[in-house]
Every structure is written in C-alpha cells, then in structure tokens.
C-alpha cells in the first residue's frame, strides 16, 4: 500500500538542522495493522503526519498506492488523502459548533457527495457505531469515549483504505480504550489498513506488527 524510502525530517533550530526523523525505510501492505511505539519526542507523530500527507519530509521518497507522493502538488496530494485516508486524534478534534451528525457528515461535504447519499452514509455509520441516539448532540455533551467514537466514525465515513490514529486511547480510561481497540480490530478484519501510535504495549498487541522509534530512527 505504501512505502517510505530514506525519509528524513529536520528543522533548523538556531541555524543548525535538528533531525526528527532519520533515514526511515518502511513498507506497509494492504490489510496490515501496524503500531508505532517509542518515547515521547521520538518523532512518532511526525512520521504519522508524513504518512498522512499533512507534513512534508525533508528528504526521501514516499510512494502511496503506486503514486510518488513527494512529486505531487498540494492539490493532488489533498485529493489523494481525502479519498483514501482517515485520521483519528488523541484529542478527538471534533468541531464544537457541529452536532455529532454534522461532524460525521463534514468529510463527505468536502468531497462533494450529494445530500441524499450523505444521509444514507451517515445513517449507516451511526447505526453501526450505535450512536444514533446521540446524533443531535454537540461534542461537549458527550463523554471522552463517545467523542472518540464519533471521531472514528468521522474518519471512516468516506470509506478510507488507510486509518491513521495518533494515540487514539490516550485520553480514555482502560475500559473505553479496550472498546476502541476492539473496534479497530474489527475494522482491520473488514479490510481497513490501520497505523496507530500508542504508548501501551497492550494496545500495540492488537496490531499485526510493531515499529519502534528511537530518536527518529526505526529500531530493528
């Protein structure tokens, strides 16, 4: 599905380049469930952002579904991730002014999907996640676990092939975390490729394999 070759990322801090990612080589196949682990500040989020095309690498090649991402222009890249990638965040990042229903619907609006179709898709996912009863509530009226559920529903609404999750259970208690992980497992079974960042060995265990990052390098 995707392949990183010699990917590096640095920032100029005080005139000197500070490496955050160094020569990352990575191949992830369709249907994998990968967990990225590592201490805080080791570059996990940065790596995830590069994979998700929210950030550029400073150096290296990135191929995503047979496209050379590093050669694409902004527009094409956004087109690509809009269609194929869904994001889940530790802080949920729901839009407070929108209801649960509208939050989930938003990605579809940006993909210019017709209103009737949107309705069917949102209804479907609300049903699947068993949050139909909450659809008219605003995010602040939900518990953290429920919010993250909405976040995941929103990430999945456009039927992405790849789900990126940055510490999705970081703000949840262990029971809620477990539920989310079970959900991920189920999704993976249904064919969604998943890359998650996590601190918890237990959560990492849900995945098919683990990548350890230390000081911007992949530990083999």
């Amino acid at each position: 599905m995707l392949e990183l070759k010699h990917i590096s990322k640095w920032y100029n801090v005080g005139g000197k380049p500070t490496f955050i990612l160094k020569d990352i080589n990575l191949k992830i196949n369709d249907g994998e469930f990968v967990s990225i682990m590592g201490p805080s500040g080791s570059g996990k989020s940065t790596l995830l952002h590069i994979i998700g095309m929210l950030d550029d690498a400073s150096e290296g090649e990135y191929n995503f579904m047979d496209q050379a991402v590093h050669t694409l222009r902004e527009k094409q890249r956004s087109q690509l991730y809009k269609q194929h990638i869904g994001f889940v965040f530790q802080a949920y990042h729901l839009i407070d002014e929108l209801t649960v229903y509208e939050n989930i619907e938003t990605p579809l609006i940006y993909q210019n999907i017709k209103s009737s179709e949107r309705k069917a898709m949102v209804a479907d996912i609300l049903d699947r996640f068993q949050i139909v009863g909450k659809k008219d509530l605003f995010p602040t009226q939900l518990s953290g676990g429920q919010q993250q559920l909405v976040g995941i529903a929103r990430a999945l609404i456009a039927k992405p092939r790849l789900l990126l999750a940055d510490e999705p259970t970081g703000n949840l208690n262990s029971r809620q975390g477990e539920e989310i992980m079970d959900l991920f497992k189920q999704l993976n079974k249904d064919g969604v490729t998943i890359i998650q960042v996590t601190h918890s060995e237990k959560n990492a265990g849900y995945g098919s394999h683990i990548i350890n990052l230390l000081d911007g390098r992949v530990e083999q």
Binding site: G52, L54, S78, Y81, K82, F87, H93, L94, I95, D96, E97, T106, P107, Y110, Q111, R154, A158
Partner: peptide, 16 residues
C-alpha cells in the same frame, strides 16, 4: 484555528 485545522484534515480546500 483548531476548527480550521480539523476541517482541512477532513478534506476542506482553503477556498471552502
């Protein structure tokens, strides 16, 4: 800002 960031991640073009 956060709303803008999230919307962009969800696929919003700047024009929209």
């Amino acid at each position: 800002a956060r709303e803008v960031g999230v919307r962009k991640v969800l696929g919003a073009a700047r024009s929209s």
